[in-house]
């Protein structure tokens, strides 16, 4: 399984994501730079890491979403290549238009950094197929702008079409309908605020994130 991690100026979870991908797939991901105009051929997965790309200037993910590599990522996503955005990567995906809605300042205004319980809502996707529907998993969050908002019509559509992948089991940041992660309509783009790459081996204190990568491996390898 050929994977790539996109690194933006200010990304800081790129290494964690690369380590998790290598652990599960057995292959080092290609590390791509925001300024690269093209992607390597034959990628099975493009992953956008967490961090503070471009210092969160303007809006979180706004500048990164307009970088040269994102034009190539959008083209690849349109052709069906799976794209995973975690935390700042999720913000980049909403800012780029690959996912609907927006991630705003946490309702409590605090930076929230702790383990949270998540409900796996949709398992009919390459990202979540290794979980059972309705299962509760524990994954850490670390963000200031994770408050997912969209208009009521968009939220209804996301719920009706099975595009809500993960939901917080409690109110974490004020997100509409406690949404923690969503898919695009085709199901090949997932964005989520929690960090599955931080819980992939027992030494991390949990392994609930590992099955996200294993699920991808089982369909893409």
């Amino acid at each position: 399984m050929k994977t790539a991690v996109v690194v933006f100026p200010g990304s800081n979870c790129d290494r964690d994501l690369a380590v998790a991908l290598e652990l599960v797939t057995g292959q080092k991901p290609a590390m791509l730079w925001h300024d690269d105009p093209e992607l390597p051929d034959g990628l099975d997965l493009i992953a956008l890491p967490g961090g503070f790309s471009h210092g969160d200037y303007l809006r979180s993910g706004a500048i990164a979403a307009r970088s040269p590599i994102m034009r190539a990522v959008i083209r690849a996503a349109d052709k069906g290549t799976p794209v995973l955005g975690i935390c700042n990567g999720f913000q980049v995906l909403t800012e780029s238009g690959l996912l609907p809605g927006a991630l705003m300042r946490n309702a409590g205004l605090d930076f929230v950094c702790r383990d949270v319980r998540l409900e796996v809502v949709t398992t009919d996707t390459p990202f979540t197929r290794a979980y059972t529907p309705g299962e509760t998993i524990t994954v850490p969050v670390a963000h200031h702008d994770g408050n997912f908002q969209a208009d009521a019509e968009t939220l209804d559509r996301l719920e009706q079409q099975g595009q809500v992948a993960f939901r917080y089991a409690e109110d974490v940041n004020g997100s509409a309908r406690n949404i923690a992660g969503i898919l695009n309509a085709k199901g090949n783009v997932l964005g989520l605020m929690p960090h599955p790459e931080r819980v992939v081996e027992p030494a991390h204190g949990g392994t609930d994130g590992r099955r996200l990568f294993e699920g991808l491996l089982s369909v893409l390898a």
Binding site: L58, A62, R66, E95, P100, G101, A102, M104, Q149, A150
Partner: peptide, 9 residues
Amino acid sequence: RKLLANTVI
């Protein structure tokens, strides 16, 4: 429209 504002919000 393209950058300075996020017209979703």
